[in-house]
Amino acid sequence: KYTPEEIEKLKELRIKHGNDWATIGAALGRSASSVKDRCR
């Protein structure tokens, strides 16, 4: 489950890194597949 803060951070990282899920996941301390599924 993602907190509202994590979702905000995810949005920012998505703008910065696009679909680089590995980088976004690492920044959030989550797996690449987890953040990818969250963005769907």
Rank of each mutant, 00 (worst) to 15 (best):
R38T: 15
K11S: 13
E5Y: 06
G25C: 02
A26C: 07
R38C: 14
A22H: 11
E12Q: 14
E5T: 11
I15F: 15
T3C: 01
C39R: 00
G29R: 04
T3V: 00
R40I: 13
G18E: 08
C39Q: 06
E8A: 14
R38L: 13
A27H: 10
K36I: 05
A22P: 11
A26F: 05
N19D: 15
E5S: 10
I7T: 07
D20Q: 07
E8Q: 12
S34R: 00
R40E: 15
E12W: 09
I24R: 01
W21S: 09
I24G: 04
I24N: 06
K16H: 09
P4R: 12
L13F: 14
A27T: 10
N19I: 04
G25T: 02
E5A: 12
K1Q: 15
R30Q: 13
S31T: 14
S31I: 00
L10T: 06
I24Q: 08
L28H: 02
R14Q: 15
D37I: 07
E8S: 13
E5D: 12
E6P: 01
A27I: 09
A32T: 08
R38Q: 15
I15W: 07
E8W: 03
E5H: 05
R40T: 15
K16M: 12
L10D: 03
G18V: 03
D37H: 11
A26R: 13
E6S: 02
K11V: 11
R40F: 11
R30L: 11
N19Y: 02
R40A: 15
K1R: 04
G29Q: 09
S34G: 05
G29N: 11
E6V: 02
K16Y: 04
T3I: 01
A22T: 09
K9G: 04
K16V: 11
N19G: 10
N19H: 12
R38H: 15
E12G: 11
R30T: 09
V35C: 08
D20C: 05
I7S: 09
K9P: 01
I7P: 05
D20H: 02
N19M: 05
I15C: 14
A22W: 05
R30H: 11
K11R: 11
E6T: 04
R14P: 06
C39G: 08
A32V: 11
R14N: 12
W21D: 08
R40P: 09
R14Y: 01
V35S: 03
A27M: 04
S31Y: 00
K9H: 13
D37Y: 03
R14S: 10
I7N: 08
L13S: 10
A26Y: 04
S33V: 13
A26S: 11
D37F: 02
P4E: 13
G25M: 01
R38F: 15
L28V: 10
G25H: 02
D20W: 06
Y2T: 09
L28T: 04
E6G: 01
G18A: 09
S33W: 10
E6M: 05
L10W: 00
A32H: 02
W21I: 03
H17T: 01
K16F: 04
S34E: 15
T23N: 05
E8C: 08
I15P: 08
K36G: 08
S33L: 10
T23E: 13
I7K: 08
K16R: 14
R14K: 10
E12Y: 05
K16C: 11
E12I: 12
S31E: 11
T23M: 11
I15D: 13
C39S: 11
L10K: 03
I24D: 03
T3L: 04
R38D: 14
D20P: 01
L13A: 04
A32N: 01
L10R: 02
A22K: 12
T23V: 14
D20N: 08
W21T: 07
S34N: 09
A22N: 04
H17W: 09
L28S: 04
C39P: 03
S31Q: 05
W21N: 07
S33A: 14
E5G: 11
G29S: 05
R30D: 10
K1L: 07
L28F: 02
D37W: 04
G25F: 00
D37C: 07
I15H: 14
L28P: 06
Y2G: 10
D37N: 10
K11P: 04
N19P: 12
P4I: 14
